[in-house]
């Protein structure tokens, strides 16, 4: 049995947490701005992985595997994730914006199932898993008692860069201020001259791009992709967002890293426990602190 709380577990946990964080942010931002739990969000992540896969074969003819190729594939995954998220918003969620919440929730489940079944039935993709290509050669280093690969570095750096960018955007830029305003009071935001639907669409764009990036990172790290790959990570990232306080951006990051470390640690003990730990966490949060770690009634819901 692997040692619990070893440096290796922490590294693995941070790596998994980075992927959860990128997904959880989309859940939490969309919830913050339209109070919708977008159950299709995990599928945006899956689409990101397939987009990265396609981009690899498209560009590999011209560019050898390496950091440049990773960067290009990342951009494609983010663009495709963003586009799918914006389209879902436009065609599925926007028409129901001022209808009862349950309609949107059911629609979100519908969008999720549509994407999954469509991908399974669509011949170029199909239901069976595929191996994800080596977008860059793997290099391993030994750091104390842990093995660290360049993939770990990429996962952590991409997630950290995107999260830093997002935090700056939301806290410092006029656009971020508008996002916070829309999340607090849509009527008041309209009266400030803000195009509320435009801001909502932009929020979906960011969430989708982050999910797309997570799709690439997951493909790299756990190189097997399939149309249903978004369900479990999506659910776990959602739980991470709830753990941190749904609607709260730093909360989603914190929740995701706690989730990642808890899962790898539990996994080292027993793989079944690893799979189940997310749900144990969900139940605990709902019992002990339903608002999540950083969630408060007055906190910015974005």
């Amino acid at each position: 049995m692997a040692e619990l709380f070893s440096l290796q577990q922490i590294v693995n946990g941070l790596q998994l947490g980075s992927i959860y964080a990128l997904i959880a942010l989309g859940y939490t931002m969309v919830y913050g701005i339209v109070r919708l739990i977008n159950f299709a969000h995990g599928d945006f992540y899956m689409i990101g992985a397939y987009a990265a896969y396609a981009a690899f074969f498209l560009f590999n003819a011209y560019i050898a595997p390496g950091n440049v190729l990773v960067f290009i594939v990342l951009i494609v995954a983010m663009l495709v994730g963003a586009a799918v998220a914006m389209l879902s918003n436009k065609f599925a969620y926007k028409p129901l914006r001022y209808k009862p919440k349950l309609s949107s929730l059911v629609t979100a489940i519908g969008v999720s199932m549509f994407i999954e079944y469509f991908f399974s039935a669509f011949p170029p993709i199909g239901p069976s898993p595929r191996g994800f290509p080596e977008v860059l050669p793997k290099v391993m280093w030994t750091m104390g008692s842990a093995q660290v690969s360049n993939y770990v570095v990429i996962d952590l750096v991409v997630a950290a860069a995107l999260m830093t960018g997002l935090t700056l955007l939301v806290q410092k830029s006029p656009l971020g201020r508008a996002m916070r305003a829309v999340s607090q009071d849509k009527d008041a935001a309209k009266l400030m001259g803000i195009n509320v639907e435009g801001i909502i669409s932009f929020t979906f764009l960011i969430g989708g791009a982050f999910a797309g990036a997570a799709g690439l990172l997951a493909g790299l790290t756990y190189p097997r992709i399939m149309p249903y790959m978004g369900i479990l990570p999506g659910l776990k990232a959602f739980i991470a967002a709830v753990l941190g306080g749904i609607g709260n951006i730093p909360g989603a990051m914190l929740g995701a890293y706690i989730m990642g470390i808890a899962e790898t640690t539990a996994n080292a003990y027993n793989s079944l426990l690893g799979e189940g730990i997310a749900f144990v966490i969900l139940i605990l949060v709902l019992l002990v602190r339903p608002t999540g770690i950083l969630g408060e009634k007055t906190a910015d819901k974005i």
């Binding site: 916070r180 009071d185 309209k190």
Partner: peptide, 23 residues
């Protein structure tokens, strides 16, 4: 749309003030 009317020159202080609480 309300946001277009703002740009056209209509300002509205709504019932209940609607200040953004965490701004």
């Amino acid at each position: 749309e309300a946001h277009q009317l703002v740009a056209m020159g209509i300002s509205h202080v709504p019932e209940g003030r609607k200040i953004f609480p965490t701004l």
